[in-house]
Design a binder for these strands. Sequence first.
DNA 1: ATCCTGATTGGAAACGTTTCCTATCAGAAC
DNA 2: GTTCTGATAGGAAACGTTTCCAATCAGGAT
Lengths: 345, 345
Amino acid sequence: MAGLTIKDIARICNVSISTVSRAINNDRGINSQTRERVLQVAKQFGYVPNNSARNLKMAESNTIALMCKGMDNPFFQGMYPYFQQELEKYNYEFLLHSMPEEIDEGYEAEEIAKEKRLKGMIFLGGRLDYPEAVLGNIQVPFVLCSVASAVSVNMTNMNVSSVSIDDEKEAYKVVRYLIRMGHRRIAIIAGKKHDHTVASLRESGYRRAINESGLELDPELIRYLDDSIPEYTEANGYATMKKLLESGTDFTAVFVISDRMATGAYKAIYDSGRKIPRDISVVGFDGIELSRYLYPSLTTVVQPVRKMVKSSVELLRAQIMGDDTKKHLIYDAELSEADSVRSLL
Amino acid sequence: MAGLTIKDIARICNVSISTVSRAINNDRGINSQTRERVLQVAKQFGYVPNNSARNLKMAESNTIALMCKGMDNPFFQGMYPYFQQELEKYNYEFLLHSMPEEIDEGYEAEEIAKEKRLKGMIFLGGRLDYPEAVLGNIQVPFVLCSVASAVSVNMTNMNVSSVSIDDEKEAYKVVRYLIRMGHRRIAIIAGKKHDHTVASLRESGYRRAINESGLELDPELIRYLDDSIPEYTEANGYATMKKLLESGTDFTAVFVISDRMATGAYKAIYDSGRKIPRDISVVGFDGIELSRYLYPSLTTVVQPVRKMVKSSVELLRAQIMGDDTKKHLIYDAELSEADSVRSLL
DNA sequence: ATCCTGATTGGAAACGTTTCCTATCAGAAC
DNA sequence: GTTCTGATAGGAAACGTTTCCAATCAGGAT
């Protein structure tokens, strides 16, 4: 409780507080013997620097906030440990902050940055088209992770770095894959209509694949989420799939734009008495750990989560250290072929 | 970037900084008109208090750390949003901190508390028998959440509050349920042998249920985790179940001590060509969201997560506010009967 | 008119650092 | 011996608050 201060250590070592400060911060301009002695004493007496004082003096904190929209999303949750790990490397604090479902003009991230004296922010998920007001005023370094594909969205000229995959392309690829496997009537469980998240990019990929293959873009096959259920949840995947099945529309495969929703879709299919992939082939998106343990294991687009997190933190770090070149990293995802797709050839 | 200070506001309002401070903190001993005027100006100019300075002066921060062992566990992950929500009520920061797999004498949580100037800590998961050194020296309020059943473990006389369920009892109940359904050869996928987590309590419950029912405690039916695979993961559930199946031991039901592992076990069962619940009945433990979306939906013990989180935070809050009565809350869990158990009657 | 009281306000110290500016000192160069 | 130099150390201000203490003042009691 007592809490030793730099002053105590100074007294014990019979040196000035400036010297102790220099020793602890590994500053130069101090005799290495003195430093050793001070450090030794500090350790022995269990001295711990007071971050508040340090931050006050240095006019900043050491905290990075992870601004998360939909923090109950298993895809994001799978990232937390990685963020923790990467941020730890630089001795950053990790503040988890959830953003409201609806982010509009009224939401100003900068207020939070100021209030918490953040050193940086990482936005995880959220809108592709953040209103100018939301991001435009942020005065601390920040990066967008898994939110924007600079390819598809006009974000390259915003003063911001990002790490993502090319959602449109990957969705395109996975639907093409279904077509190669002989499927012709392919449904999609898409996101909310026009909600400006990656979901809409994935839907675009689907549309392009269908179009380019000369198949029919049947509106009956394109299903948007149920507005009355929390978005992008298992429950919503279940409900939407159920409606699709009950509509009597004919199809042999379905692309569910997230693994989480695919989990719900699986159940709806089973509950209807159908079998995967015998009656319906399913592909997901994200590559959450669970996808390998569903039965049958889910064919899905695996995002390189580890790399994305690492890069996000590195990009942020670079910005904090003064590098002001804005980068947009776009990683390739990988189609993981599992047992949920049947070949019709 | 500038960052207005209390001093600026004072100058603008033509009052002293003490007055501004009083206005902002809603202190008494200030004319209400003055207060209104100051607050109005502060707001207008976008003043944000500097927490570092405040914390320095007040000799504390406003941060609560969630000390999490196994932060990739979906059961815990499901709790994060709730913690966020509850802590927000008191304006606490939410610091997510993962603890190492192996927690022994060498690990001192107090160091972290000191370093980060924590206001409180919540331990999520971890050992039932934390070595004295780990918890014994902690000088800030803390509570254990979902780690200890005060009923089973001699923790009542430690200076600590806790929130949990009675893991032994709940496990007992779920195994009794299997027995009522006519099962006689009931296997268990337990935890690591003697690892002092809730897993061992759940195993005890299993043993008692089997014993009391006059059934045989066949060592062949009691399976511990594979040491070569990360503990308590889907992968480990899969591997352990696979071994059990391949051993040729006869059984009609299996109690998997966590839903996460049950997910892996499901897959192992399917992969072996068996069906749930036709060939093998399965029950899990925890009640993670996913359990309802497995196929067939998993019969499991649902922990009252929402309530547990709320109580943890409230208990912590009470301690912070000076209440030093240590409480041990033990909630009832609920058996959620789903489709993974077949009646043999 | 004087004194006292309570309400309101201002002044200043303190929290634990970092860092600029000086001071000291040993040895090298003269 | 004197002067300069570089290395090392100490002193003190400053960061933005909170809070104790003293000061002011209006109005009621004397």
